[in-house]
Simulated scan of single mutants.
Amino acid sequence: MKFIVIGGVTSTKLLIDKLLDSNIADVTVYGYEPKDHSLVSGWTDLSYSQKKGYIYKAFQKINDLENEIVEANPDYIFVVGLSQLVSRKIIDAAKNFSIGFHPTALPKGRGRAPLAWITEKCEDGAATFFELTENADEGQIFVQTPFLVEESDDAESVEAKLLIAEKDALDELIFAIKNNKLKGTQQSEEQATFNGKRTHFDGCINWENEAYKVDRLIKAATLPHPGAFTFFEDLEIKIWKSEVLFNSPYNGVVGTIQKVNQNDFIIQCLDHCIRVTSWSTDNSWLPKVGMRLGYINSLEINLLRKKVADLSERLEVMETSLKKVLSNKL
C-alpha cells in the first residue's frame, strides 16, 4: 500500500513513527515548512523521515502540489496537524480514504485552535481520526480515543495527554487498514459545535476579569502556543504558568502586584488573586510590589488625547511659521 502523510507538527511526527513501527515502507511525507516556524504552534521538522527511508518533500501551500499528489495515486492520504484546508482534488486522490485528525470529541469542537479551546473551557478531548471531506471536520469517524482535561491542565499537559491518546488510536487505525477492516461512523450534525479562529492577540490578559477566567486563558495560551501576555508600561510580559488563589489574604487594585516571592508573584484580578509562577520578557524585568500590569483604557485614551492635542498645537505653530517664511520669499 502507498501512503502520503501531510502535516508539520508533533502529532504528524507521531503518525510517521507509528507507520515506521508498523513496517509500512511506501510513504511520502509532505512536511510543512513555514517562513517563520515560531508562528506555528508545535511545529516539527519532519525531514528526519528521509533518513528513515521515506520520501520527504517540503511545502508551504499544499494545494500547490495537488497535481503531483494525484499523480502519485496513493491508497491512503493522512492530513495530520495542518491548519490549511486541502483541495477536493487532493482529498479524492486517495484510492481508499483521505484521513484527517482532530483533538476533540467530534462532532463537538469542529474548527480552529482545538487544543487551546478545550484547555480554556476545561472540556474533555479525543484523538479522532475521520474521513476528510470538503467541509472541515465533518467526515465519518474511524477511530476516537477520549482523554480527560482537568482543572490543573494547561495546553502543554493537554497536548501530552492527546499524544498518548493518539498513539492508542493509531494502533487501532493502522491495524484496521492493514487488515482491510477500516469502517466509519457518521457524525451527528445535531450534536455538532464549532470553534473559531484564535490569534496571538487573543492571549492579551484583561486583569479586570475573574481570576478563574484569567488563569484558564493563561493555561490555554501557554506552550505549544505563543503565550498569554500583559504589559508593564511599554514592556510586553509573557505569562506562562499560573494558579488561582481562592483564599488569598491579599486584596488590592485590579492588575496590581500584591506580593513577590523568590520564584513567583501574586497579582489581583477582579475577584481573587492569581499566582504567576513562570514568565518571560525581552529584558531583565523583575516584578515589584505595587506595579500595575496591563492598561487602563480610560487613562490610556486620556493620555493619547493629550498627546494628539499637543501634536496638533505644534503642527499649527509650524504651519504658521512656514506660511510666514513663504510669504516673505514671495
Score class of each variant (00 low, 15 high):
A113E: 00
I118Q: 01
C122V: 12
Y76D: 01
A94K: 00
S87M: 02
D92F: 10
G111K: 08
N73L: 05
V70T: 13
P74A: 07
N67P: 03
F59E: 11
T128F: 09
S83I: 00
E123T: 13
Y56Q: 14
I77M: 14
S83C: 01
I91C: 04
H102A: 15
A93V: 00
L65K: 01
H102T: 15
E71R: 15
I90L: 00
N67A: 09
V80Y: 07
I69V: 04
L115N: 15
D124P: 13
I69H: 10
D64A: 06
R110F: 05
R88Q: 12
R112T: 01
P103K: 08
V80R: 05
L82D: 01
Y54W: 11
F97W: 14
S83F: 04
N63A: 05
A127E: 12
V80M: 02
D124L: 09
I118H: 04
D75C: 08
G125K: 08
S83N: 02
K61R: 13
S83E: 04
Q60Y: 07
I69G: 05
A93W: 07
I77W: 07
I77F: 07
P114R: 10
N63W: 07
I91N: 02
G109F: 09
P107D: 11
L115E: 15
R88W: 03
D92E: 10
H102C: 13
R88D: 09
P107C: 06
A94Q: 01
N63D: 12
D75P: 10
Y54K: 14
E68R: 09
I62S: 05
A72R: 12
F101W: 13
Q60F: 04
R110M: 10
I90M: 01
E123P: 06
A105K: 15
V79R: 11
V86D: 03
D92N: 12
A72M: 08
L65G: 04
Q60G: 12
D75E: 14
P74W: 10
G53D: 06
P114N: 09
K52S: 15
D92W: 06
N73T: 11
N73D: 06
C122K: 12
L65V: 00
F97N: 14
L85T: 03
S98M: 06
K61H: 14
I118N: 00
K95T: 05
Y56K: 15
G81S: 09
D64N: 14
Q84A: 01
V79D: 13
C122Q: 13
E120D: 06
K61C: 09
A126C: 09
A113Y: 02
G53W: 09
G100K: 04
I99Q: 02
K89Q: 10
I91F: 01
G53N: 05
A126I: 10
Y56E: 12
R88Y: 05
E66N: 12
Q60A: 10
W117E: 14
K89W: 06
Y76S: 02
A105Y: 12
V80E: 07
G111M: 07
N96Q: 12
Y54F: 15
D92A: 07
D64R: 06
E66V: 00
P103G: 09
K52G: 07
P74T: 08
A113W: 00
G125N: 13
N96E: 08
F97G: 04
A94E: 02
K121T: 02
A113R: 01
L65P: 02
D92M: 01
K95W: 03
E120T: 06
C122M: 04
F78Q: 03
I91V: 06
I118T: 09
R110D: 08
Y54G: 11
I62H: 05
D124A: 14
L106H: 08
A113P: 05
